[in-house]
Every structure is written in C-alpha cells, then in structure tokens.
C-alpha cells in the first residue's frame, strides 16, 4: 500500500514529540517555537493523508500566522513587564522565562491531570479502533452532482455550493472575532492604528524583505484563489497568504495599518459577507432558494463569492494578527 512503511510512523512520532515539547518545555518562547514546528509537521501529515487543501491551510495558518501571533504576544508581554519596571530584560541573553512568577500547580493537580488526559486519549484511541468497517463517507454523493456546482474541485464545491451556508456563517464569525479583538482596546486608544507602530531601518534587510516578498505573495495568493475551482486552493488559502505578506510589509514599516475608523478598511472587511449574502438572496428569484445557484452561471457566482471572501479573509486575518490598537490616535 505505501511504498515506504516507515515514513508515517516516524512522522507521527516526531509530531507527538513536538506536541510534548510544546507543553512540557521550560520557557514560553520555546513552547511557541515548538508549536510552530508542530504546525509545519501537521502540514506534512495532511499531505500524507492526501488532503492537500487542508495542508495548504495548515501551512499558511499553523506554520505562518499562528506562530507570528504568539511570538508577538510573548514579545508584547515582555514589553509590558519591562514598562512596568519588573526588571526582566526583553527576550534577550541566556533566556529567562519572561514570566517566572507562574508556579506550576501542586503534585495532586498534576497527577490528576495526567490521569484525566490519559483517559481522554485512551477513549479516543478506542474510538479510532472501533470505527465501522465499511468506512462511512460522502464521496459518492459529492461527486454525483459536482457538475451542477460549476466547480471541479470537490472541496471547493462542498465549501461554497453544498455547504455554502456554513461558509457564510464562518466569514461572519471571523468578523465578530475581529470586533471582539477591537472591542478590547483601551478607550483612550480607540480609533487608532491596530497593533503596534512598526519601525524598520529604511535600507535594512527587513525593509528589503518587506519590498520583495509581497509581490510574490500577491502572485501566489491570486494563483491559489484561481486554481481553487479545479485543484486544491481557494479563498481561504489565498486570503491567508495575502494576509501574511501584508503583515510582513507592515512589520517592515513600509505599509501603515489603516486606522480602525478608516472607511476603506471597513469596506474591505464587509465586502466578503456582503457579496456572499447578496448572491445568496439573489438565489430566491434566480433558483428558488437561498444560496441557490442556477447551474448555468454557477461558476461565475462562485468565483464572485470567492473573490469577495479572499479580500475579506485577507483583511480580517491580517488585522486579527496585528491585534488591538495600542497607539493613541494622533
């Protein structure tokens, strides 16, 4: 069945090792680094499982955005401690744990936790072993009416045609998450620029990277968006890659983050859900049902929806990782 039977067990072993490291390692920073590695190995696992769409998403989010989000969170926590005069250096030197004052719970709690988590894992392993032999699946059903959805890639068909309702709700959930992040801004800083003010040496290597990568990222983003119709790819992966390179340009100090109160920023946020909802409602006259795409123009409708989704996902994820505004609006 598999040409080289040793690869999967080795990959699973390394994934679990990284997982244990991310939990058991001494310092917070090392835990974040372990988690970045964990995300990357998960992307390889998804490729081994044949789920390339998921591997793309995991690579862009697991190894990319989540890592940067956690790294900047740890850096900001260290900055807050330094600003408060707790004389802990900012992430430097033989590396002290920025939060030495967090004691581990007592032995009783730890042993109870071990028993509980072992029970959870054992129950799930048993569940995996007891899965029914004729593996249930919807492959046939998805394939049978694929032609009516206007796209060839089954995952995109499920995301936008068969279960378009979920994706609509999901983009709204992302919007609410961003509203949640922004609502945590201190009152004095409301309306300011999201995240910290980023400065970089104009002719330095970081600025160079900030100038060189975004165009390539844009190219890869549009490529992923376009192949979504017939190969693994699509709005989510494209949006994530665009958000990542936009953040890189922001971190290189080349692109100022538009103010929270900026109208263009809010338009970019809302365009995804708005287009999706509009096409969904247009389904009533066109095809007699909410989110009903007439097969003739289904492909065009889906591409329109994906375009709106890509823009909104890129903006929302970028702002989510940038974080709540910290600077006083000048």
């Amino acid at each position: 069945m598999t040409a080289f039977p040793l690869l999967d067990p080795a990959l699973c072993f390394v994934i679990l090792t990284t997982a244990v490291l991310a939990v058991a390692i001494r310092t917070v920073f090392a835990a974040v680094v372990s988690f970045i590695v964990f995300g990357l190995l998960m992307a390889i696992a998804w490729v081994r499982l044949g789920a390339v769409d998921v591997a793309l998403t995991e690579a862009a989010i697991g190894a990319g955005l989540t890592g940067v989000l956690l790294l900047s969170t740890v850096a900001r926590i260290a900055k807050h401690r330094a600003d408060r005069g707790d004389d802990v250096p900012i992430l430097e030197g033989p590396e002290p744990d920025p939060a030495p004052t967090d004691p581990l719970p007592g032995l009783a709690t730890q042993s109870l936790a071990i028993v509980l988590s072992a029970a959870v894992a054992a129950a799930l392993v048993a569940a995996v072993a007891l899965l029914p032999v004729p593996a249930p699946g919807l492959v046939a059903e998805v394939g049978s009416r694929l032609s009516e959805t206007g796209v060839e890639s089954p995952v995109t068909a499920v995301l936008l045609a068969y279960r378009g309702y979920d994706t609509l709700l999901e983009i709204v959930v992302l919007l609410f998450a961003l509203l949640g992040v922004w609502s945590l801004t201190a009152d004095a800083r409301w309306g300011g620029q999201p995240g910290l003010r980023h400065l970089a040496r104009p002719d330095g290597v970081m600025a160079y990277l900030g100038r060189l990568l975004p165009p390539i990222g844009l190219l890869v983003g549009v490529y992923l968006f376009w192949i979504g119709g017939y190969r693994p790819g699509g709005a989510f992966q494209a949006g994530t890659v665009l958000a990542a390179v936009w953040l890189l340009a922001v971190m290189a100090g080349l692109v100022p983050i538009p103010k929270v109160s900026g109208i263009r920023l809010r338009l970019a946020l809302v365009i995804g859900p708005a287009v999706f909802l509009a096409i969904g409602l247009a389904g009533y006259p066109l095809h007699g049902a909410f989110l009903g795409y007439p097969p003739a123009i289904a492909k065009v409708l889906i591409i329109l929806i994906e375009a709106g989704l890509t823009i909104s996902i890129a903006t929302i994820l970028g702002l989510l990782v940038a974080g709540a505004p910290e600077e006083r609006p000048s």
Partner: peptide, 13 residues
C-alpha cells in the same frame, strides 16, 4: 513563502 515570517517576528520582538 512564509519561512522568513516567524523569524522576522522573533527578531522584532
């Protein structure tokens, strides 16, 4: 494409 991303975030930190 995103390989340099985490390192840039670390260095800024």
């Amino acid at each position: 494409l995103l390989a340099a991303f985490a390192a840039v975030a670390f260095v800024k930190g």
